[in-house]
């Protein structure tokens, strides 16, 4: 953070947030239902709106995330164009939800999911074939034997970077505990742990020593797995020979369509989201 409280590139001793977990997200699809595409080539956000999968589509129930997925899908499908998909205007919000509500009326969406387990359940039960997805769900589904592909849309990912904030009002033991907590997150183990879910940590080198070379090669470098790789719950989530969808960290972060933000129209979008969810 710059000295004038703005965010800038000049190094200062001031920080606003402590970066840690981040990733690039897209949608997952069940390759047993949706024909497998080619990363960055044929895979597209527009698949979420493909009528072939009508009734088998879900979005994450979080407007600050799901809205982006919807925007990317609508734009990729050519249904609308947006000036800045990271900061939609009210009219663009209206336009977006008009499209989404109509699709929902047509029964295109199975619904929304509110947690990773819920998203896993929807696909594993066959309720959905394609949906907004977080990385852990993809590998959990793979561990269950479901050929879930984490798409690498040609339009690019929705990127996000988690941060930890410390209130300036925090003090004393609470402040110490808060620092301990933030330090723990960057201590290496949590980074290695979340790497096995497909997430990245902001200080990966500290986690690398806690990952096997095969794990590192697969999760960060996008190389084919030399052995079966286990996830966070000891289940094999990657079979030998598989390559991570989208490739290496660099490759994936080189294909970003938008960074998650909280738009100025956030509150305005909530009522639209409610309308979208309430449409039967």
């Amino acid at each position: 953070m710059q000295n004038d409280n703005s965010i800038g590139a000049n190094e200062t001793k001031r920080i606003s947030f402590l970066p840690y977990v981040h990733n690039v997200d897209s949608f997952g699809y069940n390759a047993a239902v949706v024909p497998r595409g080619t990363a960055y080539d044929t895979e597209s956000w527009s698949w979420l709106l493909d009528r072939k999968f009508s009734g088998k589509v879900a979005l994450v129930n979080e407007p600050t995330i799901g809205l982006f997925d919807a925007v990317l899908a609508v734009q990729a499908a050519g249904l609308a164009t947006f000036e800045d998909i990271g900061n939609l205007t009210r009219s663009e919000i209206d336009q977006l939800f008009r499209i989404l509500v109509e699709l929902r009326k047509d029964g295109h969406f199975r619904g929304v999911w509110s947690s990773v387990p819920h998203s896993v359940e929807l696909m594993s039960q066959g309720d959905v074939a394609i949906e907004s997805m977080f990385s852990p769900a993809v590998f959990e589904l793979n561990a269950k034997g479901i050929d879930c592909v984490y798409a690498s849309p040609k339009e690019g990912y929705r990127a996000w970077h988690g941060v930890m904030c410390l209130s300036s009002a925090t003090s004393g033991a609470n402040q110490d505990a808060a620092y301990e907590y933030m330090n723990w997150w960057l201590s290496g183990w949590p980074g290695a742990f979340i790497a096995r879910q497909g997430y990245y940590i902001s200080n990966p080198e500290r986690s690398r020593k806690l990952l096997s070379a095969d794990e590192w090669d697969y999760w960060y470098d996008g190389k084919p797995a030399q052995t079966d790789l286990k996830g966070t719950n000891e289940d094999v989530v990657v079979k030998q020979g598989q390559t991570r969808d989208g490739g290496s960290y660099e490759k994936r972060f080189s294909n970003i369509a938008v960074w998650n933000t909280v738009m100025n129209t956030y509150e305005y979008s909530l009522s639209g989201w409610n309308e979208f969810l309430s449409t039967g």
């Binding site: 129930n61 979080e62 407007p63 909530l270 969810l277 309430s278």
Partner: peptide, 10 residues
């Protein structure tokens, strides 16, 4: 109301 409860209601 607009997201979580609406999601549950949905």
């Amino acid at each position: 109301v607009n997201v979580v409860m609406a999601g549950e209601a949905a």
